[in-house]
């Protein structure tokens, strides 16, 4: 599986999710937590799910029916995803002095991780 590009927005999403990794969140909730607009969040979530860092599932029917609204799609970090995301976030921290803060190339990422 590949790794997502650690853009500033991706980092914000991951930090929001990792704050309470056991808790499932829906897209709009993450917009608020990460402070990002809806159009930015969904592609990031799709990508993170694609690489296996996140898992998503529909809300339990009992819950949304009781509240009388359509069912939400909930996202949660996978165990591997939480580990990989924490490492990736740590790497971006280490390379903070790069001219483009917030993302590292694959070269820097592997180099930084090995040293």
């Amino acid at each position: 599986m590949g790794a997502p590009r650690m853009t500033l927005q991706t980092q914000l999403v991951l930090r929001a999710l990792l704050e309470d990794p056991a808790r499932l969140r829906y897209g709009l909730e993450l917009c608020e937590l990460a402070g990002l607009p809806s159009g930015t969040i969904y592609p990031i979530l799709a990508r993170l799910e694609q690489v296996g860092w996140l898992e998503s599932s529909w809300e339990d029917s009992a819950v949304h029916e009781a509240e009388g609204r359509p069912r939400r799609r909930f996202y949660g970090v996978t165990q591997d995803g939480a580990e990989a995301a924490r490492e990736a976030l740590a790497r971006t921290y280490r390379s903070r002095k790069q001219p483009l803060p917030g993302w590292v190339s694959a070269h820097q990422a592997t180099g930084g991780g090995a040293s």
């Binding site: 590949g2 590009r5 607009p37 159009g39 592609p43 694959a106």
Partner: peptide
């Protein structure tokens, strides 16, 4: 915003998972 992000989402969904962005 969903409208603005839709092309990006479309690209993401069409790309194989293993490909580095």
């Amino acid at each position: 915003h969903v409208l603005l992000g839709a092309p990006r989402l479309s690209m993401t969904l069409r790309r194989p998972a293993s490909q580095e962005q």
